[in-house]
């Protein structure tokens, strides 16, 4: 894992934890396979906002074109795609 990928992963994890707290849930299930969308933590519009936030924060251009949504909607997959640009 590159340094950038690790930073993006931490950035997203913080956001996930905050959202889980709002619903009174624990963060035990947060691993690389954690689905950001199917878990209900991010709905579709919030997922787009997450992408934009990551682009602004890390000055990257996220390109999901060659990735399967089953991959880029997970914590690990999103971080990897975003870091690779």
């Amino acid at each position: 894992m590159t340094e950038l990928e690790q930073e993006i992963r931490e950035f997203i994890t913080t956001k996930v934890k905050k959202r889980l707290e709002r619903f009174g849930l624990t963060d035990e299930a947060i691993n690389d396979e954690f689905s950001l969308t199917e878990s209900g933590v991010f709905d579709s519009i919030e997922f787009v906002e997450l992408m934009t936030d990551v682009e602004h924060q890390f000055n990257v251009s996220v390109n999901f074109e060659n990735y399967d949504p089953g991959e880029f909607t997970t914590l690990g997959g999103f971080s990897r795609c975003a870091a690779q640009g």
Binding site: S35, T37, E38, S44, F64, E65, N66, Y67, D68, P69, G70, T73
Partner: peptide, 12 residues
């Protein structure tokens, strides 16, 4: 369409 691809089906 698989669940994860429903809202982003381009590749599918």
């Amino acid at each position: 369409v698989p669940p994860a691809s429903v809202m982003a089906p381009a590749k599918f």
